[in-house]
């Protein structure tokens, strides 16, 4: 038999829950003010002519323009390429960090984190110094006779990609490293004792168990890179035009708030779709992972 609940105790519990919920109010207020309101404002702008009348004209203009679609393709190309390189470089690096001795791992981690403490503008111009025609890298290449002509490393897709990977790699690395470091060393030992080679250990134990971290890292890379502006603007030299630079140009050159808002909304939708895709993929993979070998 359960005794009758004491209403005073139930009220205490309720008050406690309310108190902890109320702690989130300041943050909710800021988010509402700084994120939700501007987005609502952009949505409204996208339906206004420069004269202030309601119209679908902005959407027609933007969606029928070839420039919009090529910008979207460039955006996705940049994001996907950055993600692919981050996975290829970051996963082995995370594995190396996770298996290094703690002191070595800390030193390496500090090197990885160094770029995060530097302003993105400084870093981007730093790359410019390294990558341009008379920059350090090309000077070394031509000076040593490895290449006859300076390589086109900057003011193009390659340069933009280098800058973006440099920025994103630490952010990709962190969740992957955390996931790998959390793997019980005995699981790896067990796998190895049962006959698994290093490659088999990585494939059957380490990667499945760090899949969550790789997914988180990938999501971060994708969401960030979709909206990247400074790096393509500086290192792309006007030849790499993702949605972000199109928005800026639409505003600065044409003062067309309506079209810029439509482009902004397009960017938001792409971001949301990718977010949903990642979530779905993640759910699917964890369900499969639990069921089979």
């Amino acid at each position: 038999m359960t005794a009758t609940a004491d209403p005073a105790l139930a009220a205490d519990a309720l008050r406690e829950r309310r108190f902890f919920l109320s702690l989130s109010l300041p943050a909710l207020f800021i988010v509402g003010l700084a994120a939700i309101l501007p987005i609502l404002w952009i949505i409204r702008q996208s339906f206004l002519t420069t004269g202030g009348e309601y119209t679908f004209g902005n959407y027609e203009k933007v969606l029928s323009s070839g420039l919009t679609w090529s910008a979207l393709v460039t955006t996705l190309e940049l994001s996907l390429a950055t993600l692919a390189i981050c996975i290829l470089l970051g996963t082995p690096l995370a594995l190396a960090l996770a298996s290094a001795r703690p002191r070595v791992a800390n030193v390496l981690m500090a090197f990885v984190m160094l770029p995060l403490w530097t302003s993105i503008l400084v870093r981007t111009y730093g790359w410019l110094v390294l990558l341009r025609r008379d920059g350090l890298i090309n000077a070394a290449l031509t000076g040593s006779g490895l290449t006859a002509e300076p390589l086109p490393l900057v003011y193009n897709f390659t340069g933009t990609l280098i800058g973006m990977v440099h920025y994103m790699l630490p952010l990709f690395l962190l969740p992957v490293y955390a996931a790998m470091r959390d793997i019980d060393a005995n699981l790896i030992r067990a796998s190895s004792s049962m006959g698994a080679s290093l490659g088999q250990v990585i494939r059957t134990v380490i990667l499945p168990l760090s899949a969550g971290g790789i997914f988180s890292g990938s999501t971060i890379v994708f969401i960030y890179t979709i909206g990247f502006f400074i790096t393509p603007a500086v290192l792309g030299g006007g030849k790499v035009n993702p949605l972000s630079t199109r928005i800026e140009r639409t505003l600065s050159t044409f003062q067309d708030w309506g079209s810029a808002s439509v482009l902004g909304i397009l960017l938001l939708i792409v971001m949301a779709m990718i977010g949903v895709m990642f979530l779905a993929a993640r759910r699917l993979s964890t369900r499969n992972g639990a069921a089979h070998a």
Partner: peptide
């Protein structure tokens, strides 16, 4: 270790959670 052909039972069992 993977060539030694030794069965090991670990203190925390070390079963694969996935």
């Amino acid at each position: 270790p993977n060539k030694r052909d030794i069965g090991i039972v670990f203190q925390n069992y070390a079963l694969f959670p996935h």
